[in-house]
Amino acid sequence: MPALEFPDPALTDGLVTLRPWRESDLERRFEAFSDPLCLRFSWPLTGTPSLAHVRERFAAQEEARLSGDELPLAIVDAEDHLWGGCSLYDFAPGEARASVGYWVAAGARGRGVATRTTRLLAGWAFEHLALARLELVCEPANVASQRVAERCGFVREGVLRSHIPFQGGRRDSVIFSLLPGELLTSTALEVR
């Protein structure tokens, strides 16, 4: 698959902006992602994350973008404060399918950031990548992510048992799907 190009211009709804990661973001990314909630639901390894892990992930994501496997983006506010990260990944081009994922820094939670991010990314993916299906998976105890999926119009399909390797074992995942025309685009949520 060819390299995935970053949205140009950056995706924004006026409050949330999705832009390419920069090397200058890495320390802020490490600090934000080191939050216990991010580690509980999004950190797949058993050890404690380090700045070296973040640098390795940054490089791996760029390689994945160039090979057409992942499109990673930083979530920032209008003043470029880092609010989290998101990506399109698990591309299956022959099936016109991909997955969407995100994490939100502690200081940005409870403001609709994940919902706005998912709406922006899903709308762009359907329009510019001609996807026929977008998936969202999360840990069954991650109720906040399940609510984000539902607010965006994703339909819960079930639980994938022993779905992925996670923190030294295996983890179940709740799977949601979204098809073209199903995205709920209400912007009633306010970022404070």
Rank of each mutant, 00 (worst) to 15 (best):
S67Y: 06
R57H: 05
D90Y: 15
A78M: 05
E70D: 09
S34M: 01
S87Y: 09
L66W: 14
D35W: 04
S24Y: 08
E56C: 04
G68P: 02
L45S: 14
R22I: 04
A10C: 12
A64S: 11
A64L: 13
A64M: 10
R28Y: 03
L37A: 13
A60Y: 00
D80Y: 12
F6T: 13
Q61A: 14
L4E: 06
A78R: 09
R55Q: 03
P20K: 15
L4M: 09
L39W: 10
S42R: 15
D25L: 03
A32Y: 00
L18W: 06
R28L: 07
W83E: 08
D69N: 13
E27P: 02
R19A: 13
D8G: 06
R22C: 09
R28K: 12
H81T: 15
I75N: 04
R22H: 12
T12Q: 01
E62W: 09
F30P: 03
F6M: 12
F41W: 14
E56R: 06
A74C: 10
L71S: 00
G68C: 05
C38F: 03
D77V: 00
V54N: 02
L18N: 03
E70Y: 10
T17N: 10
L51K: 01
P72H: 06
L11V: 03
L66I: 13
A74V: 07
A10F: 12
T12C: 08
G14H: 06
F41T: 11
R29K: 14
D8W: 12
A74G: 05
R28W: 06
A64I: 02
P49N: 02
L45C: 10
V16I: 13
S87K: 06
E23Y: 09
E62A: 04
E23A: 11
R29Y: 14
D8A: 11
L15T: 15
P72C: 06
A32G: 07
F58L: 01
